Simulated scan of single mutants.
Amino acid sequence: MLDDVIDEFAKDYLHSDLRELREALVRKLDGLSEYDIRRPMTPTGTNLLGLVKHLAVSEARYFGEVFGRPFPEPVPRWDDLSQRGVDLWATAHETREEITSRYQRAWAHSDATIAALKADSPGHVPWWPRPDVMLFNILVHMLTETARHAGHADILREQLDGGTEMDPEALARRGLDEAYWANRRAEIERAAKAAG
């Protein structure tokens, strides 16, 4: 009995964090142009809209086929090498609304799977070395994956326009304005040069 209570607490806790990260990731697109949300910001092409698209596919796959609850829309096959990486960027014909809406539909499907299953419900991930898993494993995996990509999105957004998730008014009240950040960056640059 106590194990069930602990399992449900853990499931609810992880699920709550996953929900918050999903919302934060989508907010990173707010106020940016179509070009900026698609713009490759790293040598490997990492971009904001591509991160959203990738996580839509990941959630659809991990909370869908892994538990025999397939997402009702087509998802690239995990074993189709010709499709590797296509979920990491948006074509010119895919709209922001299509991709974010698909992500939100994947959330709803994932949320239904999470609600329907116990934390120790079995699943099977054929592309993992140890393919037999529980819902708990997939919750931890997707929370980690989403947090990782939300961190990427934080950096990309800051590079694009200086935007952060931090409340600008609260930062200003604490004296953390543009001058503060310019001084902080200069201090860090001096330390880096001195160490180099």
Rank of each mutant, 00 (worst) to 15 (best):
P72E: 09
E73R: 12
E73I: 00
V75F: 10
V75G: 07
R77Y: 01
W78V: 05
D79Y: 13
D79L: 08
D79N: 15
Q83R: 14
Q83N: 04
R84C: 03
R84S: 01
R84M: 02
G85T: 01
G85A: 02
G85M: 04
V86T: 12
V86F: 00
V86S: 08
L88N: 12
L88G: 03
L88T: 14
L88Y: 02
W89N: 10
A92H: 07
H93R: 13
E94D: 05
E98N: 05
E98V: 05
I99W: 06
T100Y: 03
S101R: 02
R102Y: 02
R102W: 06
R102E: 07
Q104C: 01
R105N: 11
W107E: 09
W107C: 15
A108Q: 15
A108L: 09
A108N: 08
H109K: 00
S110F: 01
D111C: 12
A112V: 09
A112K: 11
A112Q: 09
T113I: 09
T113R: 05
T113K: 06
I114R: 10
I114D: 04
A115V: 12
A116V: 14
A116G: 14
L117R: 14
L117P: 03
L117M: 08
L117D: 03
K118R: 13
K118S: 11
A119R: 08
A119P: 06
D120H: 10
D120T: 09
